[in-house]
């Protein structure tokens, strides 16, 4: 079986970029989730929603950049981009879940 992952030689001066970009992926990802959640809850104005998408775009770019820096194969690259698309919905799904659960079970309290 051919491994899908290729093992590139990474030069010493390439590492800083790799570590910085992989940190950005997660930091921007959390920033995106936080902005979506807070603005949907009304703690931030609705104007922050577009900003959150900018976070997502930057995150997607960081992941793209990371995949270039570690010389990903085309297959890995596709998987990563699909994962990024999925992540676009993640905070919305999470928020929908907390909100619906809140509605359903705080009603349950009133019935008791």
């Amino acid at each position: 079986m051919e491994p899908i992952i290729s093992m590139p030689v990474i030069a010493p001066n390439e590492f800083l970029g790799i570590f910085a970009v992989s940190t950005m992926v997660l930091v921007l990802g959390v920033g995106y989730a936080a902005l979506v959640t807070l603005s949907k809850m009304g703690y931030l104005s609705r104007k922050w929603i577009p900003v959150s998408y900018i976070f997502w775009i930057l995150q997607a770019y960081s992941l793209y950049d990371l995949s270039v820096r570690i010389h990903s194969s085309p297959f890995t690259f596709k998987v990563l981009m699909i994962a990024m698309l999925a992540y676009l919905f993640a905070p919305h799904v999470y928020f929908y879940l907390v909100e619906q659960a809140e509605k359903r079970y705080s009603q349950a309290e009133e019935h008791r």
């Binding site: 929908y96 619906q100 659960a101 359903r104 079970y105 349950a108 019935h111």
Partner: peptide
Amino acid sequence: MSKKNASVWTS
């Protein structure tokens, strides 16, 4: 609770 059709996502 019983009257309404609760979403499966909150089950």
